[in-house]
Design a binder for these strands. Structure first.
Length: 227
DNA sequence: GCGACAG
DNA sequence: ATCTTGTCGC
């Protein structure tokens, strides 16, 4: 994608951000929020970690569902083109994530991404962005809110509270473990909020993060030693 | 004008 | 994301 390779402008150049904003607005029309039309047998989790300022390492972990047994682990590293700007995370991390995804021998039915889906100013969080590029069902699980308001869900595992933005519920604030800060679950693409929430909870074992993203996060750090 | 702001 | 020590609680 041409917009991924921009060495001709500073990372946070206002003109570039304006350009990316326009691109996201065009991408909005292609987002599909619906009940999943597949049997969830294989789920992937992905996450990235950094080495220094501009070297990124992304990992994809493939798991059986609902058993949550790991069946494949891949990773890829490269250089990032943009600095981090809230609302534009995907332009910084998606390129390398897509490279890592190609290394999977088996492809998942659904991808759980570390970050937001449609709970984004222009409905284009990194989970949605990846879903559109891969034409694959995706969902996002973020650790912090980006936009919207919510009330704290009850302290017990399984409690949910809606995240509202501009009069719409764009995510569910889900408690995945007793007395631990909740996560923000949102559909990315070819997925709906209720299904995403149910899947996130089914993948929550004894930790705050659902297994797919927890393991991706874990291995993204472990694989750094292999560089 | 003053905060808020995924990873 | 990343840099970092001790500390509270199950």
């Amino acid at each position: 994608m041409a917009y991924y390779r921009r060495h001709d402008a500073p990372p946070t150049d206002p003109r570039l951000l304006q350009e990316l904003t326009e691109l996201q607005k065009k991408m909005q029309d292609r987002i599909i929020i619906q009940k999943p039309d597949f049997e969830l047998k294989l789920i992937a989790g992905c996450d990235s970690s950094f080495i220094g300022e501009d070297t990124i390492l992304s990992a994809f972990i493939l798991l059986k569902y609902p058993e949550l047994e790991v069946v494949e682990k891949v990773w890829h590293h490269g250089q990032v083109e943009l600095s981090y700007v809230p609302g534009f995370l995907s332009f910084r991390e998606a390129p390398n994530l897509l490279e890592a995804y190609q290394k999977l021998e088996q492809k998942p039915d659904l991808i759980m991404v570390d970050g937001h889906g449609i709970s984004h100013p222009r409905r284009l969080g990194i989970a949605t962005h990846l879903g559109l590029h891969l034409e694959k069902p995706t969902m996002g699980v973020a650790k912090k809110v980006l936009v919207g308001k919510y009330t704290e869900p009850a302290p017990t595992k399984g409690s949910i509270s809606p995240l509202e933005y501009k009069g719409e519920v764009i995510a569910n604030v889900l408690r995945t473990k007793d007395n631990v800060k909740p996560v923000f679950v949102s559909p990315g693409h070819l997925m709906d909020l209720d299904s995403a929430t149910e899947i996130a909870l089914n993948c929550a074992t004894k930790y705050k993060l659902p297994e797919p993203t927890r393991l991706a996060d874990h291995y993204a750090a472990v694989f750094k030693k292999d560089i």
